[in-house]
Design a protein around this nucleic acid. Structure first.
Length: 315
DNA sequence: CGAATTTGACCTGCGC
DNA sequence: GCGCAGGTCAAATTCG
């Protein structure tokens, strides 16, 4: 407890030395972002990594609870207009559920109204046979960072922390503080490489970033980059030019469907950005060279993380 | 004093 | 049906 508090203090004070890898565990694409403070296209795209299973992805865990529906219903990107009807329905369902949760009474009243709520929840709860509880599309990225909670331009309220099985590091749960925004994120450390933070976003922001840079641009929206990164450092958040070593994760002897145990199963079974298809070959890397025509568009959270040129093929 | 965080309890879904 | 693990709530606590 004391340590974690101090850690949070340090987080806000030092903010941050990090570099990031965005990963699409389901589609097997990795990017490594280097030099985030002054992110250049060259450094960004030269640093794209290839996951070890890129050419031969491991089968998703058959035991993962949500993977099949999530993967099948997953839009090509979390923010693309091609979100399937199933996903939209899922969002609506979740909103309804969230509405129920947010408006539920205190514990005492809850006991009094328990029966009624059970009825309500039963009404909401999808039938197991045809409709699983579905979630917003998720995507995640890895960040080499000394701090857990990285500045991403949005304000988050921590609402929970849980110990993770087989990991010494707890998982923290955050919710966007904007009233109408249901975006959540989870932050945890890779237990094989504690220097790597795995951040998973669920949902997309439908509001402007509340945190502005010194230049007046929301964090993650660079005026001249052609794309936005979302993990671009603020003036108060200098990031270190550093490369991320994934070897600790990828070469662990316990390598399995869940990425050497470096990540929990949900990372691979729920995370979005299908079909990113990032390659490490020079020819294919050139596909990701940002162009000057990359107009800023409101693609929600995704635009903060993924260069549009990469999202193009998923639109 | 309001906002944010902590943390134990509770809920839910899944596998056995 | 039971147990486990992930996810969430909300009272208590801490922080600014």
């Amino acid at each position: 407890m004391e340590d974690s508090k101090e850690g949070m203090k340090m987080e806000s004070l030092t903010n941050h030395r990090s570099s990031s890898i965005m990963f699409d565990p389901s589609s097997i694409g990795f990017m490594e972002l280097l030099g985030l403070q002054e992110l250049s296209s060259a450094s960004f795209f030269d640093s794209i990594l290839q996951a070890p299973w890129m050419e031969d992805p491991p089968p998703s865990s058959s035991t993962a609870p949500h993977d099949s529906s999530d993967v099948l219903n997953l839009p090509t990107t979390p923010n693309s207009s091609s979100i399937s009807s199933a996903s939209n329905e899922a969002a609506t369902t979740n909103d309804d559920h969230q509405h129920l949760i947010n408006n539920r009474p205190g514990r005492q009243d809850r006991e009094e109204e328990e029966d009624e709520q059970k009825k309500t929840m039963k009404q909401w709860k999808p039938k197991k046979t045809n409709l699983k509880r579905q979630r917003e599309p998720r995507f995640a990225f890895m960040t080499k960072s000394e701090v857990d909670h990285l500045e991403d331009g949005y304000r988050w309220r921590k609402y929970g922390q849980k110990a993770v099985k087989n990991s010494p590091f707890p998982r923290s749960y955050y919710r966007c503080t904007t009233a109408t925004c249901n975006v959540k994120k989870r932050v945890e450390r890779c237990f094989n490489d504690p220097s790597i933070v795995v951040t998973t976003y669920e949902g997309q922001h439908r509001h402007p970033s509340p945190v502005m840079t010194r230049a007046g641009y929301p964090i993650g929206v660079l005026p001249d980059s052609g794309f936005s990164t979302g993990i671009t450092a603020t003036s108060a958040a200098p990031m270190q030019m550093a490369s991320v070593s994934l070897s600790n994760c990828f070469q662990h002897p316990s390598y399995n469907n869940n990425m050497n145990g470096c990540f929990p199963s949900w990372s691979f079974n729920h995370v979005g950005l299908r079909g990113a298809g990032i390659s490490n070959t020079p020819q294919e890397r050139s596909l990701f060279t940002p162009t000057s025509t990359g107009l800023l568009r409101d693609d929600g959270l995704l635009q903060d993380i993924v260069p549009r040129i990469i999202r193009k093929e998923k639109e």
